[in-house]
Nucleic acid binder design. Structure first.
Lengths: 180, 180
DNA sequence: CCATTAACCGCCCGATCGGTCGGTAAATCA
DNA sequence: TGATTTACCGACCGATCGGGCGGTTAATGG
């Protein structure tokens, strides 16, 4: 039921998807749908929670590990790609949310907390000497995760296994396009 | 008038923005707004045209130049960042469009044509030996422009001059995070 | 100065939306 | 078996939306 809603939200947009559409895609009526969920916003909340939960666990791992920041950053990038690939539809919805309601604002705040963790990790990696120090840490963090997050625009299971995509992304993030 | 509409589309979402909202933000009535534009969809079409026009001109430059593909690719990345920064609101709207109407579908098609040009450029650069050949060209193109396109999520004029952001992006794209 | 055009407005319409309510059939449990 | 809960439905409501219509004022040009 949640997955059906998320699929419709992603293909037609959250606002453009009516509760009738969701009910119809499930072969039930709108009334029945309301018997199971409290409203449209709850569907959104549950969906973005599922995405944020996985992302936050990956971030927690990166914080708790005793390894150097550079390897923790690389691992967080890889893990994030895997989360994106595995929960593609939920993360897609999350990344399209823009804080127009209270529930959306909360999701945006949690996303920002994630971004802050990444920025701090980049800063530590720079201090360690593992990452070049001539780029602003916040900018680099945003750009690298811009790369990661772009998966929601193009990733499909037949475009490669999540693990191999994760390798490509972290390779490109650390070594760039140039031949070595 | 167009810019007012685009600003509202970006902050509240296209569907969530009513023609009344747009008219109100201009200090006119809905009737007057309809006297100047044929409808809501025309506003969207005009806005994405303004974004696609600039992007397509950058792509044309990259195609017409006699330089090696590697330098043309780098130039296209830089020019794209500049277009994103200068026409941020229009490109933001463009990148959020998902082909739900005929007009939107046309915009998506033109975006895909742009992506194809980038992929071809990466392929040529790989053939030249200027770009590593161990990553799939289409994947690399999508990831690099995922990085570029992420600007719509965070760029503000006070976060640096467009030119310096363009340098950072192309540096990161070609050389990565690693210290050299 | 008069006719035409452009800019503007108030009022209305049909459609759609999120959500509610009263009630029925089916499952569960004592 | 009888009572209670759960799943389900049709009909309805108030609000909002994109858009249209008829008419008025202001500018323009011969």
């Amino acid at each position: 039921m949640l997955t059906a809603a998320v699929r419709l939200f992603n293909t037609h947009g959250y606002d453009a998807t009516s509760m009738f559409d969701i009910a119809e895609s499930l072969g039930i009526t709108k009334s029945t749908l309301y018997h199971h969920v409290s409203g449209k916003e709850q569907l959104l909340t549950m969906a973005v929670d599922r995405a944020l939960g996985a992302l936050e666990e990956a971030a927690r791992e990166a914080l708790d590990s005793p390894d150097p920041a550079t390897v923790r950053l690389r691992r967080l990038i890889r893990r994030s790609v895997l989360v994106l690939a595995e929960r593609l539809e939920f993360v897609t919805l999350l990344l399209r949310v823009h804080g127009n309601t209270a529930a959306e604002q909360q999701a945006v705040d949690r996303r920002r907390a994630f971004d802050r963790i990444v920025t701090d990790l980049v800063k530590q990696a720079q201090a360690e000497g593992g990452v070049r120090a001539d780029v602003d840490a916040a900018t680099a963090a945003r750009l690298i995760f811009g790369m990661v997050n772009s998966l929601i625009e193009w990733y499909k299971p037949d475009r490669g296994a999540p693990e191999s995509i994760a390798d490509t992304v972290s390779d490109l993030a650390f070594d760039g396009l140039r031949t070595h």
